[in-house]
Simulated scan of single mutants.
Amino acid sequence: MTTLTQYRIALQIFQSNRLRRDYSDLAEIPQYDLVGEFFFSEMYGPRDFTARDAGARRLQHILQMLPGVHVRDVEVVLELLDLTNRLDGGLARLMFRHNTGTDFDEATYDYFYRLADNYDDRLTQLKLVDTSLYNVFRLSRSQLLGIGLHRSRLVAKLAGIEVAHDFLVKGYDAVRNVTDIDHFAQTVYTRELARLDRIYER
């Protein structure tokens, strides 16, 4: 019998593959290669993010001591992680209850995506992604922040939040060599909004 966890993993695999397909052109641009991989794997990859998300809230106390980091920067990322977890969990449960099978195609995914009836939450999620991209890009301009992130690994490990800390270090490193985030961020926002409106027939 297929479990809810298996549905959740199948959903993550589908979404990660869909993003790789839809943004393959961005991934081919050298400065966006690492950003794309972080987006496809660390944000939406097929893995259990429980430890990452649980540690993220405890990690904010360390982050606020690093140079250039504002409370709102941390809050936006936490809000995005929480909302994404809730939306994906709800969609997985919906598909599980309807026994769609874990080898669903895009048409089936789109059908249940719309059936979930959470357009406003999805739009909020997209806006949080956009804001987070610009925030991380701004923060990545600071070499002092990079040094602080890498040097605080031991503190994060001792505090039991190493997974969440590693997530942020990877995000910083992925954006560090990007010179212009506009094209990446605007492309993601425009395409995802068009897709959202198409599914909801708006």
Rank of each mutant, 00 (worst) to 15 (best):
L139A: 03
V136Q: 00
L168F: 07
D33P: 06
R141E: 06
S41F: 12
N118M: 14
D48K: 11
P30T: 04
H150M: 08
R20G: 10
Y134F: 12
G171Q: 02
R86V: 11
G160Y: 06
R122D: 04
G89N: 03
D173N: 12
F112I: 09
F104Y: 08
S140H: 03
K170V: 07
V76I: 14
T131A: 15
V71E: 15
Q6E: 15
N99D: 15
R176N: 07
G36H: 02
V178C: 00
L115G: 05
D103W: 01
A27T: 05
L128Y: 00
D82H: 08
F104P: 02
L83N: 00
R93L: 15
Q31A: 07
L78S: 06
Q125F: 12
R141W: 08
S132Y: 09
Q6R: 12
I199H: 01
R153L: 03
Y111K: 11
R191M: 04
I13N: 07
R141Q: 10
D53P: 01
L87T: 05
L145A: 03
V175P: 01
L196E: 01
Q186R: 09
L80G: 00
T50F: 13
V136P: 02
D173G: 03
G101S: 07
T3V: 05
E75K: 15
R97G: 08
A174G: 01
H98L: 01
D130Q: 14
R93V: 09
S142P: 01
Q12N: 13
A174K: 00
F49Y: 11
L115M: 15
R8I: 02
M43F: 12
Q186W: 07
R58I: 06
R198Q: 14
L168K: 04
S140G: 04
D120E: 15
R202N: 07
L78T: 00
R97E: 14
G148P: 00
D130L: 10
A156R: 01
M1Q: 13
S24A: 15
F39E: 02
D88S: 13
D73L: 08
I147K: 12
L133S: 01
D197C: 11
V136C: 10
D182P: 08
L59V: 06
D105K: 03
A194H: 13
S140T: 04
L63C: 13
F104K: 05
L196T: 05
D88W: 13
P67C: 10
M65N: 12
I29R: 07
L66H: 06
T124I: 08
D88T: 10
G68T: 10
V74M: 09
A10H: 00
R8V: 06
G146Y: 02
E201Y: 11
T3D: 05
P30K: 03
D82A: 14
Y7E: 04
E106I: 09
Q125S: 14
Q60T: 13
R58L: 15
R97V: 14
V74H: 00
E75F: 13
